[in-house]
Amino acid sequence: MKKLTLDKGDFRIFWIKNAVPILLIIFAISMVFVNRTFSSWDNISNIINEFAIYGITACAMTTAIICGEFDLSCASVFGWSTVLFCLTCTAFGVLPAFLITMLSGVVLGAFNGFLVAKVRMPAFIATLGTMTAIKGLAYVVTDAQPIKTENETLYAISKFNIGGITIVPLVFIVVVVIFIWFLKFTKFGRGIYATGGNYEVARLSGINVKFYKFIVFVLLGACAALSGIMYGSRIMAGWAPYGSDLALYCVTVTVIGGTSLMGGNGGVHRTIIGILFMGVIFNALTLLSVGGSMQKFVRGIVLISVIMFDAITSKRHKA
């Protein structure tokens, strides 16, 4: 803003920094012309309802990545939560089910946090282990079968909507606002940035780094459980394999948004762009009747490209 003229380098930085939103806009506009359904309200509300579920966990994953950590097990926590929620819903009703499921998410997250913060295990391998164990747990409880719930209150809640927008996006917005607020404006949030930015320095500055390494996993566990509850309440069913691509999705949208895997920078507000981007692209693929395995293929390619891009730009930044 101080300079009136932009030189070539500024333009390049501008492009790199804003490549994702620009691509998103171009893509969305061209989709409007290619496919009529795309711009219909039904479809748009569909996109919104769809991405809000995973988006909740993506916020927490972003927070974990800012703190320099990573969690594969959120996918299993999600599946397990759909199961637990449906079981407890039938047995005890909606509110107790909600509380129990959230509690289980917190406990599972805390276990991951304990392994990483206290035992000092690399997050990758620790969460790989818990991912397997939790998925096993969900299978054991349900005997690998999908289970249903027929709780009427839940049915009413899941059908409630305003102009096609269900309650899930509202929850998502609340979660996003809370995350953005506390990451920017509380000691707690800044501690997460400091811990991810430089563990040793943060420790010497009197920041309780182990607490932050621990707490991001608890947040992730809780958010994955919340996502699971949202999903379970939407389809009134629970099954262990539900959400098995959640970890992949969360890392992808976080890094697309521009939060680097190196830790210490980025933010949930950026992840929103990543979520929109993925939401629009995969909605478009569905509309263009691209099959499931092809979509899976695209997901993998997108993840790899995004990680490569992040690595190349952040390393160039350093050099």
Binding site: F185, K187, A202
Partner: peptide, 12 residues
């Protein structure tokens, strides 16, 4: 770093 303000909330 690690101190900010006296309260839990940050006055940037």
């Amino acid at each position: 770093l690690g101190r900010y303000n006296d309260s839990q909330y940050i006055n940037w």
